[in-house]
């Protein structure tokens, strides 16, 4: 195994990890605030991909501009889902909550298949295959842009959580909904906005990677659900920074795992990390800040 291959694996792993981080950020945020494990999260990513695809093929809009619309549109959809399904389910037993998000995932996959069909699509950017060469290493611009934007958005969102009033409200609600309520925070609205933002970020990530991967209705659940769960568990469910770091770590783990075990067992690296983390660090690497 040469050094170039290792460097290649590392760069590809990091690029993938940046996207993972953005997707996992939304998932961990939703868990942190509502304590709901959203099994439908990856479908919002797929939806973002399809939105970017349709925006490009029907209207000629760049996927990167479509990403903004995808964020807005899915924010509204996510908020509507929160209001109609998640909010009433919060009082229900956990198993019901889990099955509700699982049912939502099934519905969304079916709906996307009805709208876009089961075929694989790709956003045919004219420069979609253009690569940047760094010595022997070649990386497509689409991957680089997706990574750069994802990391920038995630960083911006982190600043929002730390500095802005809205971010403070989200963090307060995640710490303790009751205390937040006493502080005059409208927790219902925070839940609504958090679900909208979390799913919106997944859609935004989807639009960013629409020029990179083949799009089909089960893309998200096939390739992103498991890594996203691994990442939020690794970074402690509910911990934003944990999801960021976890995203990069899992991107790298999969990349090197694929190199060592072969493509078929790529996901095994994720699963192995998942099981080991659950066992040795049941509260995640960033444990203790779980609430």
């Amino acid at each position: 195994m040469t050094a170039e291959i290792l460097v290649q694996a590392m760069v590809l792993g990091l690029l993938q990890g940046g996207i993972y981080a953005l997707v996992a950020a939304g998932l961990t945020l939703i868990y942190g605030v509502m304590k709901v494990v959203n099994f439908a999260h990856a479908e919002f990513l797929t939806l973002g991909m399809y939105l970017a695809f349709s925006a490009y093929t029907l209207l000629g809009v760049s996927p990167y501009l479509a990403a903004v619309f995808a964020l807005g549109l899915v924010f509204v959809l996510g908020a509507a889902v929160q209001r109609t399904l998640i909010r009433p389910a919060l009082r229900h037993p956990q198993i019901n909550q889990l099955l509700i998000t699982i049912g939502l995932s099934t519905m969304l996959i079916g709906a996307m298949q009805i709208i876009w069909g089961p075929r694989n699509y790709v956003v045919p950017l004219p420069w979609g295959r253009a690569t940047l060469g760094l010595g022997d290493l070649r990386v497509t611009y689409t991957r680089l842009i997706a990574f750069g934007v994802a990391v920038a958005i995630a960083a911006g969102f982190w600043v929002f959580l730390k500095r802005a009033r809205g971010g403070l409200a989200i963090r307060a609600a995640a710490q303790s909904p009751d205390a937040a309520r006493l502080m005059g925070i409208n927790v219902e609205r925070v839940n609504l906005v958090t679900f909208g933002l979390g799913t919106g970020l997944a859609a935004l990530a989807g639009a960013l990677i629409a020029p990179v991967f083949f799009i089909n209705p089960t893309f998200g659940i096939d390739y992103f659900l498991l890594p996203a769960f691994v990442i939020v568990v690794l970074g402690t469910m509910g911990n934003f920074v944990g999801a960021m770091v976890g995203g990069l770590v899992i991107g790298l783990a999969e990349s090197f795992g694929g190199l060592l075990l072969g493509a078929a067992l790529r996901q095994f690296a994720s699963l192995a990390v998942f099981v080991l983390i659950l066992l040795w660090l049941p509260r995640g690497v960033f444990g203790g800040r779980m609430t």
């Binding site: 939502l104 995932s105 099934t106 519905m107 079916g110 709906a111 298949q113 009805i114």
Partner: peptide, 8 residues
Amino acid sequence: ALYLVLYG
């Protein structure tokens, strides 16, 4: 696809 929507 319709089945998935109904079942979901």
